[in-house]
Computed example of a mutant assay.
Amino acid sequence: MRNISDVIEDYLKQIIQSSNSDVVELKRSEIAESFECVPSQINYVINTRFTLEKGYLVESKRGGGGYIRIIRLKPKSNQELIKEMDLVANQPLTQQSAFDLVERLKEEDLITEREKRLMLKVMHRDILDIPLPHRDLIRSKIFKELLTTIKMHG
């Protein structure tokens, strides 16, 4: 059975897709009410599933009339997306950030499902079995090399 976070994520993505815009404004309290959960559950989903690495920008206004604005970032081209990801990978990459970037490559059809699984495997902490912060540095270097390969053969 799927957990509530997955259901909320799917619901929010459906709202974004069905709107004719890449920007949606939502009331946290209304979403929490419709899913019979606390507003902090909505915050958790938004903070973990709608990140910059996954292609979203989130703005939030707290308080009584508070809202959440989710903006779907759409690069002008595949080359622009790769360039943006390359810039992100100039910093050490956590496993989650790297996985989010790879998932975005798949969503944008720049890699196949098989390539996605291979990329996730080589960047997993079990494979990069070295102490932090070196592990995140090496992960970013691996990711940048994979991006270069995608750029050259894509």
Rank of each mutant, 00 (worst) to 15 (best):
V102W: 01
L52C: 14
G154R: 11
E30A: 14
I16T: 07
K76L: 10
S140F: 00
N20G: 15
V58G: 05
L12M: 06
D10F: 08
Y11M: 05
L147T: 00
V7M: 07
A89F: 00
V23N: 11
S140K: 01
G63M: 07
R72V: 05
A32P: 02
A32K: 02
Y67M: 15
R2H: 08
V88T: 13
T48P: 08
I8D: 00
K151A: 10
Y11W: 05
N43D: 15
V58P: 04
N90Q: 11
Q14H: 09
R69W: 04
I16C: 03
V58L: 04
C37Q: 08
R139A: 03
E145H: 08
L52M: 15
S97M: 13
M119K: 04
L120Q: 12
L12W: 00
R69Q: 11
V7E: 11
D10L: 10
D22A: 09
T51E: 01
L147G: 01
I8K: 00
S97C: 06
L87F: 09
G66A: 01
K144N: 11
S34R: 13
E113M: 10
E84A: 07
P133M: 03
D109M: 13
Q96A: 15
P92H: 05
F143T: 02
I142A: 05
Y67G: 09
D126E: 12
A89C: 02
L52V: 12
E84S: 14
N20W: 11
P75Q: 03
I70P: 00
N43P: 13
Q96M: 08
G154T: 12
E115Q: 14
S21E: 09
N3Y: 08
E59T: 12
L57W: 09
G63E: 04
L120P: 04
N78E: 11
I68C: 05
L147H: 02
R135H: 10
V58E: 00
V7S: 07
I71M: 04
K54L: 14
Q41I: 15
D86H: 13
G63R: 06
M1K: 02
R139N: 02
G64T: 10
Y44T: 14
L147K: 00
L110P: 07
R62P: 11
N3D: 05
K74Y: 04
I16A: 04
E107Q: 14
E107L: 10
K141L: 09
S97I: 10
E145I: 07
S18F: 07
K106T: 15
R62L: 12
G64R: 13
R69N: 05
Q79G: 08
M85T: 06
L110I: 04
I16R: 02
M119V: 06
R49L: 06
Y67T: 12
E33S: 12
Q79N: 09
A98Q: 03
I15P: 03
